[in-house]
């Protein structure tokens, strides 16, 4: 939780204080400012702004008049020139004072600039196309991100389809000593009953038992059946109906 709060604070300060992120990647919270906290609250002040929070909410203001606040799963902000941004519950949107806009959620995002340029991106990058001349990435099953929620990749692509991510990531990460606090925290609230049929996972929940039905291999965890397969240069597990 401390790490999470620190991450949030550091990131927040970058925003609220209008720091030049390109010039100070790792020093953003360490130059000419102070941070304190305790008993469920925290506050920070920098040369050009302040931020504080506690009991599930937070707020910040910059010296030029920008402000941001959030709590209970949502957040919003206003820049001193009138730009706005807000989000919550897995989605976000923003509008720039010169007419640009952006929004996202569910692992993808899109944006339109004030000049009308439209760009987009996301994590649902499955392979596709034909042999030669097609779009091939990625070339291996993305098993790297099992303990990294923000890494995206195939695993996230499956997870964002529903509330499944907690379940599979949860159990897998809980057994990974190297899992970072972010993922471990995400895992803590995992529900074991939220696997979607057809979803793909690169790791099995700990305790999944191997079963053979009709000559085919499956893994079963808490009533959910996984069918293992080899594809895209690695092993993956698809949630299937009970065979």
């Amino acid at each position: 939780m401390i790490k999470l709060m620190t991450m949030g604070t550091v990131s927040l300060l970058i925003t609220a204080l209008y720091a030049n992120s390109a010039a100070a990647y790792f020093h953003a919270s360490g130059w000419r400012g102070s941070v304190s906290g305790g008993n469920g609250s925290w506050s920070a002040s920098g040369l050009r702004g302040t931020a504080s929070g506690g009991d599930g909410s937070w707020s910040a203001s910059g010296y030029r008049g920008g402000s941001a606040s959030g709590g209970d799963g949502s957040w919003s902000g206003t820049g001193f020139r009138g730009s706005t941004a807000s989000g919550g519950d897995g989605s976000w949107s923003a509008n720039g004072y010169r007419g640009g806009s952006a929004s996202g959620g569910g692992g993808s995002w899109q944006a339109t600039t004030s000049y009308g340029t439209h760009v987009y991106g996301g994590v649902d990058h499955y392979y596709g196309g034909a042999y030669y001349g097609g779009y091939h990435p990625p070339t291996v099953v993305n098993s790297y991100g099992a303990g990294c929620y923000n890494c995206g990749g195939w695993y996230a692509g499956a997870a964002v389809a529903g509330a499944v991510v907690g379940a599979a990531t949860g159990v897998a990460v809980a057994n990974n000593e190297n899992a970072n606090a972010y993922s471990a925290g995400y895992a803590a609230g995992a529900r074991a009953d939220a696997y979607a049929i057809g979803a793909i996972y690169t790791t099995l929940p700990a305790g999944a038992a191997i079963q053979t039905v009709g000559g085919a291999t499956y893994y079963v965890y808490n009533g959910t059946w996984f069918s293992p397969g080899y594809g895209a240069n690695g092993v993956f597990y698809r949630v299937v109906p009970t065979p």
């Binding site: 991450m7 990131s11 927040l12 209008y18 920008g66 820049g79 509008n95 720039g96 925290g185 529900r191």
Partner: peptide, 27 residues
């Protein structure tokens, strides 16, 4: 779970907020 998800959303949101507040330099 809800608190964790909100915290995750907060961290991502704040990062994205940087983009939004910095004059939305979308390109």
């Amino acid at each position: 779970q809800s608190a964790i998800s909100k915290t995750n959303a907060l961290i991502i949101g704040v990062f994205l907020l940087q983009i939004g507040l910095l004059s939305l330099r979308i390109p």
